[in-house]
Amino acid sequence: MTDRIDDALRFHQQGLNLRARRQQLLSSNIANADTPHYKARDIDFRQALAHAVAGKTGPLALVQTSRRHLEPRGGGPFEAAMRYRTEHQGSVDGNTVNADVERAAFAENAVHYEATLTFMNGILRTMQTAIQGQ
């Protein structure tokens, strides 16, 4: 039974995790909007989620043929899907953050995060109804 609940929620849990990390990445971009030479980054969410759900680390996963091989660190689906933003208008100090684009993406990501939370709550409520039989 508990693994069924786990299965039902796993997809949204992965999504929520990636959304939270994307939110963090976007807040890093906004925090560094005035930092010289800072390059704004974002993730390819579709790729990250597909890899996270499939349990793959990314397109360049390290093949482990022995138990003594080292576990790669920081090479999860999120890191593999990270991309540098293409700048619309270059600035002299080498900074590629476009504050408006970042803030829009931040707001959009927050809404998606809340949507995922709503889906999770819906699943839990459905299960509760089924358990109580009312």
Binding site: N17, A20, R21, Q23, Q24, S27, S28, I30, A31
Partner: peptide, 10 residues
């Protein structure tokens, strides 16, 4: 937790 880390970054 990533969301709380945003508070540190901001």
């Amino acid at each position: 937790m990533s969301i709380l880390n945003i508070l540190h970054i901001a």
